[in-house]
Simulated assay, not measured.
Amino acid sequence: MKHIITLTLSPVVDKSTMVDRIVADQKLHCDEPRFEPGGGGINVSRGLKRLNVNSVAIFPSGGLTGQHLQDLLKAEHINQLPVLTERLTRENFIVVNREVHEEYRFGMPAVELLPKEELEILRVIKNLSPKPKFMVVSGSMPPGSSDDFFG
């Protein structure tokens, strides 16, 4: 196990595309979408990897979107310990309007973790061996998270 752990409780797959211009009530023809893994701690792991520093990303992962997130991280050679969840991992949508160089970011709500999923994340962290030297917890808290989660 690596010595740096990142924890992301609200991971996301960012789906982005470009259009020539945005016009209301018209069908907009988009470029092929681009997908990137995201969420606070995951972004830290990605940044560390670019600096040739290995880490392990821990995050909840649900359904096809969660599997897509895992595949994206694997393609970037990010070490990961996903915790499987019942609900789908969220996906955000970004559109760039080429005409005026504006970016529109549509952020979907964070996915609520079930109490048993919170406990599983804590169990994974507790059972890390060897214990990490550093842990980076970054990103937003899912709705309904227990007040004492970090305690």
Rank of each mutant, 00 (worst) to 15 (best):
M1Y: 11
I5P: 01
T8L: 01
T8D: 08
L9E: 01
P11K: 05
P11L: 05
V12W: 04
K15I: 12
K15E: 13
S16C: 04
S16V: 06
S16D: 04
T17M: 12
T17Y: 06
V19D: 03
V19K: 08
D20R: 06
A24V: 14
A24R: 14
D25T: 06
D25E: 15
Q26F: 09
Q26Y: 13
K27R: 10
L28M: 09
L28Y: 08
L28Q: 13
L28R: 08
L28V: 04
H29K: 14
C30W: 04
C30A: 10
E32W: 12
E32T: 15
P33W: 00
P33G: 03
E36C: 15
G39E: 03
G40H: 12
G40P: 07
G41S: 04
I42Q: 05
N43F: 07
V44R: 03
V44P: 11
S45Y: 01
R46C: 10
G47R: 02
R50N: 14
N52F: 13
V53I: 15
N54F: 04
N54R: 11
N54A: 06
V56K: 01
V56S: 03
I58V: 13
I58S: 04
F59K: 01
G62E: 02
G62Q: 02
T65S: 08
G66A: 01
Q67N: 12
Q67C: 05
H68R: 15
L69A: 00
L69K: 02
Q70M: 14
Q70P: 01
D71I: 07
L73K: 01
K74Q: 09
A75C: 07
E76H: 05
E76M: 02
H77G: 04
H77C: 08
I78M: 08
N79G: 05
Q80G: 06
L81V: 00
L84R: 06
T85D: 07
E86P: 03
L88G: 12
R90S: 06
N92V: 03
V96P: 10
N97F: 02
N97Y: 01
E99T: 12
E99R: 15
V100W: 13
H101K: 14
E102V: 09
E102K: 15
Y104D: 06
P109W: 09
A110K: 12
E112C: 07
L113A: 10
L114H: 12
K116G: 01
E117Y: 01
L119C: 08
L119V: 11
I121R: 02
I121Q: 02
L122V: 05
L122W: 04
R123T: 13
R123A: 07
V124T: 07
V124P: 04
L128E: 07
L128D: 05
L128C: 07
P130N: 03
P130E: 03
K131W: 03
K131Y: 00
P132H: 03
K133E: 12
V137C: 06
S138L: 06
G139C: 04
G139L: 02
M141Q: 11
M141K: 11
P143S: 04
P143T: 10
P143E: 06
G144I: 00
D147Q: 12
D147S: 14
F149E: 02
F150R: 00
F150G: 03
G151E: 12
